[in-house]
Design a protein around this nucleic acid. Structure first.
Length: 543
DNA sequence: CGATTTTGACCAGCGC
DNA sequence: GCGCTGGTCAAAATCG
């Protein structure tokens, strides 16, 4: 999904613990997910800096994150530059009014870009509003204006330099990643893998191992299933029918049956096989509607119709026509039991930007699909109900989301026929069914829509960030209790999950060890408690 | 006249 | 190998 629609919430500066960390859920998503690796969309200004004029980025665990962070820094800096201009104007007005000598105005651009070595001083902007004794206010303002213009020019130049640095970092990172992939492949073919298994069983190197799974390899296939909870949760991920990569396109599948350790190998682009696999992942939406199809914001062209077995109602096949070559398809069929229910099944990944209305659906389905894999297990019967999914994606109702991993394709079903808001069906004429999800940032949230759902859509990347964690969270939440104690809103849900995760001494210890193993070579002084704090801080940014 | 829908044919996967 | 089924193709028909 190379769409530009994406969740604005961002995962900026978020410790990404999913196996797609290098890809990061980003600017695209659609009904399926993407497989095509794309750069993360520049975050929007909100939520990216802690306060006016301040930008903060937590550490990153790998060079790619650094590169992304740097990119975000560039973007944010531009945003902040505008703010600086704005605030300076305000200051000027104030000065004109009062003709009072003012202290120099200094915007605090506390930008931390670890890998680029950018210092705060480099990014501090002097607005030049220095009033000297005897100056008139007008002269001071003129001076300030000139100084500001010069400063803006300097900033532009600096931005260009940073861009250059960023591209260098990117290219360096690409080269490193290639080397890493090669090394990992070689390593996987050596008996060392067995040694690692022994280490894992002994608890040694656990953190580093987990981090490798986070960053690169995904879970080991040969690890004892009864190991610690975090490892076990990863193991569950690996045991899903298809290994999943929740990447910048939303979600995608990245299958490698030959070598489980390579299942989440870092590949710069999705292969045809991946796309094919990804396409098979489906999201089904059940909704009451008298209209032939639901209005989901996309343009579709019908290309076939069939009578499927077991249902007298014909099944219609549509493909997306918003862009040439868009692979997204959908099937529309009425429920045999209740013909007022329209079952729409989406499949594939858009290769084009989507309108806001379509983004909503895309986000919802993508979120559901990504959660499918993050929380799924290869249960014996192949069919599962995920409380975590239900409570997370559709916190308003535990019965709205169902996951089926049964053959032939893993499918998430969103059942909208049981609207949590009884007024929903009254407000929405059946013949003019509108998909009840809010358009991301573009449309006002319908009053009938559970606000939590909208937030879920917006915060999809948070789910990707919690993908691995969700398993851990599940371990933290014994099933009977969360159903009664689970918060009613997504925010609360995420808060609770975060709290549970970060409160888990095993997790923090493992994470600390992992981080230490990565950055310890550069800074042996980093201790686990610091890392814990950093990790917690990063998690808190997801809130 | 171009875009869309309809509809029968074709193909691939799967089970027997 | 054969038949069933789901999914897609593509020519014809229809629509705006």
């Amino acid at each position: 999904m190379t769409q530009s629609y994406m969740d604005n919430s961002g995962g900026i500066g978020v410790l990404t613990l999913d196996t797609s960390a290098p890809l990061f859920l980003a600017s695209s998503l659609s009904y399926g997910g993407g497989g095509i690796l794309k750069r993360k969309q520049p975050m929007d200004s909100g939520g990216h800096h802690g306060g006016a004029g301040t930008i903060e980025f937590p550490f990153s665990l790998n060079p790619r994150r650094d590169a992304e962070t740097a990119n975000e820094a560039l973007t944010s800096k531009r945003v902040v530059a505008d703010e600086v201009d704005f605030f300076s104007d305000e200051k000027k007005k104030q000065k004109k009014k009062d003709t009072i000598a003012a202290s120099p105005v200094e915007t605090d651009l506390d930008l931390k870009v670890p890998s680029l070595g950018i210092k705060k001083e480099d990014l501090t902007i002097q607005t030049g509003l220095h009033l000297r004794n005897g100056d008139t206010a007008k002269e001071s303002v003129d001076d300030g204006m000139a100084a500001m213009q010069a400063e803006l020019a300097r900033m532009n130049e600096e931005n260009q330099k940073l861009r250059g640095m960023l591209s260098q970092v990117n290219s360096s990172y690409s080269a490193l990643r290639m080397q890493l992939a090669t090394l990992m492949q070689q390593r996987n073919r050596t008996p060392q893998a067995h040694e690692e298994k022994i280490d894992a069983e002994n608890g040694d190197q656990g953190g580093a191992r987990v981090l490798r799974q986070f960053l690169d390899l995904g879970p080991d296939a040969d690890v004892d299933e009864h190991s610690n909870s975090s490892t076990a949760s990863l193991e569950r991920s690996s045991s899903t029918p298809e290994n999943v990569e929740v990447g910048s396109m939303g979600y995608g599948l990245h299958k490698n049956e030959g070598n489980p350790r390579e299942a989440l190998e870092l590949t710069p682009t999705a292969t045809a096989e991946q796309e094919s696999t990804m396409r098979r992942t489906r999201v089904s939406v059940r909704a009451r509607s008298e209209a032939p199809t639901i209005t989901d914001g996309c343009q579709w062209r019908k290309y076939g119709q069939k009578i499927a077995k077991g249902n007298p109602c014909p099944r219609a096949y549509y493909r997306c026509t918003m862009a040439t070559g868009c692979p997204v398809r959908k099937q529309v069929q009425r429920c045999a039991d209740d013909r007022s229910i329209l079952i729409t099944t989406y499949e594939g990944t858009h290769n084009h930007p989507l309108p806001p209305a379509a983004m909503a659906m895309a986000s919802a389905t993508s979120a559901a699909a990504s959660t499918l894999f993050s929380g799924s297990t290869s249960s014996a019967d192949g069919l599962m109900n995920s409380n975590f999914l239900s409570r997370s994606v559709l916190p308003c109702s535990s019965s709205l989301a169902t996951i089926s991993a049964s053959a032939p394709f893993p499918t998430v079903t969103l059942d909208l026929t049981r609207s949590p808001d009884p007024l929903q069906s009254q407000r929405t004429p059946a013949s003019q069914f509108q998909f009840p999800f809010p358009a991301l940032g573009a449309l006002p949230q319908p009053p009938s829509l559970p606000p939590v759902f909208g937030q879920t859509l917006l915060n999809q990347s948070r789910f990707s960030g919690l993908q691995v964690s969700s398993g851990m969270a599940a371990a933290q939440f014994p099933h009977p209790k969360p159903q009664t104690a689970m918060p009613s809103s997504l925010e609360e849900t995420v808060n609770a999950a975060t709290a549970a995760i970060t409160a888990d001494p095993n997790f923090t210890a493992v994470l600390a060890a992992a981080i230490k193993s990565i950055i310890g070579g550069n800074d042996q002084a980093v201790n686990s408690s610091q890392n814990d704090n950093v990790a917690k801080k990063s998690y808190s940014l997801q809130q």
